[in-house]
Design a protein around this nucleic acid. Structure first.
Lengths: 133, 133, 133, 133
DNA sequence: GTGGTCTAGACCACG
DNA sequence: GTGGTCTAGACCACG
């Protein structure tokens, strides 16, 4: 399910966070689904348990997952609901996207080509249902 | 011209790189324009010359600027020309953008809202002339 | 393995780069081989870790080595593959070799003697296997 | 006659040295030929007179040129004669050539292709007469 | 004055 | 423990 690229600059724990959130967005993981324990996932991915733990803690903080004592870790039911359209957060994201858009321009891409690329990503990051029409 | 946010997670040298590239894209800096020396910019920004040096070296590697012995450092004339639509590079950028688009979705933004945001960034990163029609 | 000549005009970090690339060419270091960490090599060579770091970063940029988070630094598998017979690069090298060939002529060496010298270097820089026939 | 590349990493004074020595090797400049004064050459090349001066001093040290008080600077008659087949010097040159040969190998050139390249340079650096047969 | 190199030393994120 | 980033400060070649 989760694939780690050890060569990547992106920290492993962020790769885990990102991929779980992606699976939720795509509908592969739904509220209540059980996900592997820290140790199990660490073994599966051949990485340090601390790394998985760090990812899970962050996911819990973001209310994406929830750990039930003695029962395991599950996808939280309230995800997507914590939509308080946080402007600070959006500014922060925008600040990070800008240099990447810049890179695309330096690669010679036109504004339209860039928009198409974003549309592709949008499409990839959806359940499929929403895009039918 | 350049503004450094010392509290940001983004390394200072990357902030410098990013802002100079942005100025070039926007047309504020053009081929042949002289930019401040390492020491001068370091003094202006109240940071260590080594940090500026690191930024300049990377910009030179990317052919954005060029240092001419004893004459100073200039915006290079061949920027934008190294457009070999590098697919690897584009993949790399896409990998970095995806988690940010995901974040926007988790903030509750619709695909259209995301696209509008990107259009804003595109507009901001242009000389103004190109967008008239 | 690596020997640094502190009195040389050649910067230490370039000596490191050069010697690691040489070891790869000669087959002493192969894809996947683990090389010492920045700190360890710095200690071994009795130089500053920053200097080793600079060398490793350049080697990584050239795809000679690759750093895997938490696992260490390795010889990359794709070296030699990025053979796009870069003419610009070749011109650049030729420009640097010319004055050295000139020096040999000023030392009184004939064209043939110069060629023999180059053959020696070629032989030295090979795995041994390739030259058998 | 002399062309300076201000963008090059090669110091300007070395470019001057190199080009004058090249002209002598090629027979364009011969014993007794008058070359421009420091100031004149500096003006012609639009560079600092100190830079030309430094080049001339080194050329004089190498007995390539000679300055006659009040008469000007000339190509020396004894060049090529100071052939004391200096082994130290040759070792030094070899040390500098090796990394360049390595670069060619990393560009994917075969030993033969490298030798051909050197032959080209040899040919370029001769008077023409020697190569006739 | 200018950039390039290097050291010593520090702090931090990651694992 | 490991690499990445940054500072302070030094020395040197070049112009």
């Amino acid at each position: 399910m989760i694939k780690i690229d050890v060569r990547s600059n992106e920290p492993i724990y962020e790769q885990i966070i990102s991929q779980i959130k992606e699976s939720v967005l795509k509908g592969f993981l739904k509220s209540g689904d059980l996900i592997p324990s820290v140790r199990k996932l660490a073994t599966m991915l051949e990485i340090n348990p601390n790394t998985v733990s760090k990812a899970y803690q962050e996911l819990e903080r973001q209310r994406i997952i929830i750990t039930m004592r003695g029962k395991g870790t599950f996808i939280d039911s309230i995800n997507m609901n914590n939509v308080k359209m946080n402007d600070n957060k959006l500014d922060e994201i925008t600040k990070k996207i800008k240099p990447l858009i810049m890179e695309m321009k330096y690669l010679g891409m036109s504004d339209n080509q860039i928009l198409e690329k974003i549309k592709d990503i949008n499409k990839e990051l959806s359940t499929g249902e929403e895009n039918e029409k």
